[in-house]
Simulated assay, not measured.
Amino acid sequence: MKDFLDLIASLFEDVLFLPFDALRELELSAWFAANGLNWIFMIIAAVAFVYWMLQLKKFNENNEEDRSTKAHTFLGKNAQY
């Protein structure tokens, strides 16, 4: 069992953490380059947010959503919980 756990530790330390080790080394020499990955994720999130808002606007303009009080129980005055 100890060999199996050592194998898992070795896998993570020697293989799976290599990209993080590279980012850690890059951060010491080029901070902006190391944080480029964060900027990429923020740009993807912003694009996804804009896309989602445009889709919601399109569905709202087409009146495709049932907005009556019977559509959802939490919209009615006498909703039972």
Rank of each mutant, 00 (worst) to 15 (best):
M1H: 06
M1R: 05
M1D: 06
M1T: 08
M1G: 08
K2Y: 13
D3M: 04
D3T: 03
F4W: 14
L5T: 05
L5K: 15
L5M: 15
D6N: 10
L7G: 13
L7C: 14
A9Y: 02
A9P: 01
S10I: 03
L11E: 14
F12I: 10
F12A: 04
F12Q: 08
E13S: 08
V15H: 15
F17Q: 10
F20L: 07
D21F: 07
L23Y: 01
L23Q: 01
L23C: 01
R24T: 10
L26S: 00
E27I: 06
S29V: 05
W31I: 11
F32L: 10
A33E: 07
A34N: 00
A34M: 03
A34V: 01
G36R: 02
L37F: 15
W39V: 10
I40V: 15
F41A: 11
M42Y: 03
I43D: 09
A45K: 01
A46Y: 06
A46V: 02
A46I: 13
A46H: 01
V47D: 01
V47W: 02
A48H: 03
V50L: 11
V50A: 08
W52Y: 15
M53L: 12
M53Y: 09
Q55L: 15
Q55E: 07
Q55C: 08
L56V: 01
K57M: 07
K57D: 13
K57C: 12
K58V: 04
N60F: 10
E61T: 08
E61H: 11
E61R: 09
N63W: 02
N63P: 00
E65K: 02
R67H: 05
R67P: 00
S68A: 04
T69M: 07
K70C: 13
K70W: 03
K70L: 13
A71D: 03
T73P: 00
T73W: 13
T73Q: 09
T73K: 07
F74M: 09
F74K: 07
L75S: 10
L75H: 02
K77V: 09
K77R: 14
Y81H: 11
Y81R: 04
